[in-house]
Design a protein around this nucleic acid. Structure first.
Lengths: 214, 214
DNA sequence: GATAATGACATACGACGCGTATGTCAATTA
DNA sequence: TAATTGACATACGCGTCGTATGTCATTATC
């Protein structure tokens, strides 16, 4: 007993720094988060931070990577348990919007991240979520459910629409009503992807999507 | 002759500050732009800045308001010269993407702005562009071209998709090829808005949209 | 098993940038 | 012409970042 192995101590230090930074970035924002303050809250100093992450931006990258990994895991679960590919895709989009409603994700990933690290489409992590959606769209195209469209392009457009919808919803006066309107409009746009034959007379299921957003 | 009237001098000072800040924000970014530096480049000091704009954020607001006014003016011109409402709407979307390709707009309006001033959907200025799109969608709904959908919701989703598409295009290795893919996918999604009767067998015109993006 | 070397942190220092408080001077107003 | 307003400059203090340096434990070497 007694002391833990070295590797674990180091990993623990890293984790504590990431956790403290994540909390600070998520609440007061990246620019207002004092490195002295949140490293102290983790029982450390900036020395540890610079040793492990190089600088403040490096730490933000680590925080975002952690959040992104969590998002990807959640998306995979959602799409995996759907009955059809199309339903899985729609569910994944819905989950995407739901996640973007969380203040921590909005602040760190959607606002401060792009400002500090540049365009998110260049991040390795964010591309994971996009790639997940792209793969689903590719399969949907292969099975003939949707029209011939570039999967990555569609995925990026849809994720862009989702993210903006989420920010609109989260900051609106009546989030629930806004959510209904956004989801309905979102479904209308997604219908554009479906082939004519499938689209005509096909009952959409906005109610089901809606309840998961409430 | 001789000295200009007082009001003009003051307006000129404000304009010089906004112009200098706009250049600094657009090139090195908001956080890296030193107030001492870019006020000096305008032949002034921070004293003038604090007098007119209160603080650095206030100046960013002024810069964004200026850019947004320009964007709105450009959008109005585009939508006004179209033959049909639907064509005007599509053209406006295209113009939106084109503007979002400009580095200055990407940096100031799309990245630093949200990080410093919060969610853009809360800005008075950004809402002008959205409102312009919303009005067009409202008219399209009234004349029966598109399905029953909340105009503002659709406008926000579409603008979100446009903005992300633009960032994706601007930062891609082959912007031209990426642009083609994005525009094609964008048209597919917009088709979702059209009523079935109009959608079936209706020749789309991606070529025309495409050339304006090249 | 003693010594050297590596690495994980803490401490100390310098520089910069922001905001405010204060000062100055011209232009209006009475 | 005297008083007042307002546009701007100057001066100061404070916080924050990055780096350079120091310390101590762990690991490697013989």
């Amino acid at each position: 007993m007694g002391h833990k192995p070295r590797k674990e101590m180091i990993a623990e230090t890293r984790a504590k720094l990431v956790a403290a930074a994540r909390h600070a970035f998520g609440t007061v924002g990246y620019a207002e988060a004092s490195m002295d303050d949140f490293t102290a809250s983790a029982g450390l100093t900036r020395g540890a931070l610079y040793h492990h992450f190089g600088d403040k931006k490096g730490l933000l990258q680590a925080v975002i990577a952690e959040i992104d990994a969590e998002m990807l895991a959640r998306l995979k679960i959602v799409s995996a348990r759907a009955d059809t590919l199309w339903q899985g895709f729609v569910d994944e989009c819905t989950a995407y919007i739901e996640m973007a409603l969380e203040p921590e994700i909005q602040r760190i990933v959607l606002r401060d991240g792009p400002a500090v690290l540049g365009d998110p489409s260049q991040w390795p992590s964010q591309n994971e979520c996009i790639r997940s959606m792209s793969e689903n769209l590719q399969k949907l195209r292969d099975e003939g459910t949707i029209v011939a469209v570039d999967p990555e392009a569609a995925a990026r457009l849809i994720s862009g629409a989702s993210l903006h919808a989420a920010q609109w919803i989260a900051n609106s006066e009546d989030p629930e009503a806004t959510s209904k309107k956004a989801v309905q409009a979102f479904n209308v746009l997604l219908e554009g992807l479906l082939k004519q034959s499938r689209r005509i007379g096909r009952p959409q299921a906005p109610a089901e999507i809606d309840k998961s957003l409430a």
